[in-house]
Design a protein around this nucleic acid. Structure first.
Lengths: 337, 337
DNA sequence: CTGAAAGCGCTTACAG
DNA sequence: CTGAAAGCGCTTACAG
């Protein structure tokens, strides 16, 4: 790698001033731009393999074409990386680059991660959380900030999964297929606390709305806030005590996994004997047999949307992203012949 | 946020030159540094909440305290994020920042991601892969490059999990607990191809070495390169045809999951009736019941090590990171009373 | 249509 | 022990 060519090198080779070279290379729509000069500039730049120095440009412009991503805990959830990918996709499309940092959820680390990003003069900042909680983020001027998958106490613009709609769609998916006696495992009023989740309440409300619309209620609702396989396992055993339950809504895929285990132990087949629908779409959902029908938390799309909003500037206070139903065959169609 | 203070502002307030301020703030061990002047500088800097502008410093120094991370597909595996966390931990400890990019494994995208990083004058570059393959990375001068969890055809320094040792340890874990009739599910000579994996061969060799040392061979080896639950399920059913097999080594956790399914269906309990040990340590491993004993792919540590090597400069050609055994109770101790 | 020059905020020879 | 000045590589008023 020879020494990198500078604007001045290009200008010298083209026999023009750096002013002109800069204008041409940045497509300044000026009267200036004799096609001839432009050609010479482009040829010289190509010949020297000229690449502008972002540090110099950043220093001059105060813009860096860089967006900071501050994650609470990239490590914790299986889909953190999907959010990052979404951010990167959009950043790349729009010729920006992403600086990454991890904050935990301690206010001091958030502040220092923020300082870091501000120091580096990022043109915008995305906070990403793996669980949709309420967080404290300092208000800063001048730089657009978007919170992905969480809400900020200070009212920063945020992007959230549309949980109400997802709850509604999940219930309708069952109702449309003729299910009437449905159980729900993983209700927890304790979770409807902004410090724990800003979206679970909507999920419940969506489920309830669809049921009410059909003139129904859940046959059984199993309480539980620890959404792990054990809850699904124990819950399913309670469900089996009821007669005629044809479908279970599981609070998430791990709970659904427990339901599968209990069903298998009991000699019940999914979906022939019991339909299961759930939320999250973890990898787990596709390991199960049959694979699990579940409402996906759209981490990729949350990331894409957050990056778009930051780059466009002036984001609205709240943006909802749909949670697509991943139909994988764990729900039986009772209306089929 | 008022306008950010500059070095000149600090100098003015301290009544000193920018030279002196710069010296003090960067702890230049000079004769210069009357304690009095230093104090005034520090006080002024603190008062103005001075933070150096990295773009200016980068322009001047050609160093950015930034390391680029180019991942093949951050999205693909569940532990991508652990590698990122490892990188971030070390970067933060050493006051560096991480620029992230995704390349896929297409040579042109690798090249353009690399250009991006070089443009931004990163002080080093880490390539991270989620599966330990052989990849093509252009040789570049001047900037240290480390490959995490892969090998480069051009011989760039790399960091790999110590699969030989892990294979050996896994087998020993069974042997030490009195197992003698052991099956292995997921042998595949086809995978021992650098284009697919540079480490699987070592894993096999480690397993074989431990068995040979004990004067044993696997009772049964199930061939298979698609390491999904189906393979484990089908493989386990073959294993059950053999008499007296007390333990199964699964090629990875997903295969082990299939083994669990087959065992449960057959009415065998893990580990009482069948011990299972495996490789990877996915989230899945801790959902199973009992949780799965498995050799962890140390993504976090791979990330940490790669970052350390890049920052230290002059990395050795190959660095091995141990794969710790996660002992979770899916192996029975036959020697226990 | 084009260029000379200032300036973004630093660091570092150089001179004192 | 300290400061004036150059220069890193750009962009952009300003003047022609």
């Amino acid at each position: 790698m020879a020494k990198r060519a500078t604007l001045a090198d290009v200008a010298r080779l083209a026999g023009l001033s750096t002013t002109t070279v800069s204008m041409v290379l940045n497509n300044r729509p000026n009267s200036r731009l004799s096609e001839d000069a432009a050609e010479r500039v482009r040829a010289a730049a190509a010949k020297l393999n000229y690449r502008p120095n972002p540090a110099a440009r950043g220093l001059r412009l105060g813009k860096t074409r860089t967006v900071g991503f501050i994650s609470d805990e990239v490590t914790i959830t299986r889909y953190a990386s999907a959010m990052i990918r979404g951010l990167l996709e959009v950043a790349e499309e729009r010729d920006h680059t992403v600086l990454i940092s991890e904050s935990g959820r301690r206010a001091d680390r958030i502040a220092s991660a923020l300082d870091l990003m501000l120091d580096r003069q990022t043109d915008g900042i995305v906070f990403g959380l793996m669980g949709a909680k309420l967080i404290e983020v300092p208000v800063i001027a001048d730089v657009p900030v978007v919170i992905a998958n969480a809400k900020s106490a200070a009212g920063h613009p945020c992007v959230l999964p549309d949980e109400h709609r997802a709850g509604y769609d999940a219930a309708r998916h069952l109702l449309d297929r003729g299910h009437r006696r449905i159980a729900f495992i993983g209700r927890s009023e304790a979770l409807v606390d902004p410090a724990l989740s800003v979206t679970i309440g909507s999920r419940y409300a969506g489920l309830d709305a669809a049921m009410a619309e059909a003139g129904l209620e859940f046959v059984l609702q199993i309480d539980g806030r620890h959404w792990e396989p054990d809850l699904g396992y124990a819950g399913a055993r309670e469900v089996f005590e009821q007669t005629g339950v044809t479908a279970v809504v599981a609070a998430n895929d791990r709970v659904a996994f427990g339901v599968y285990q209990a069903a298998q132990e009991r000699g019940l087949r999914v979906p022939d004997d019991l339909s299961v629908i759930s939320f999250d779409d973890e990898y787990l959902a596709s390991y199960l047999r049959p694979q699990l029908t579940t409402m996906q938390i759209p981490y990729l799309e949350l990331g894409r949307m957050a990056m778009q909003l930051v780059l466009d500037g002036d984001p609205p206070p709240e943006t909802l992203v749909p949670m697509p139903l991943q139909d994988r065959g764990s729900v039986r169609d009772l209306t089929a012949p």
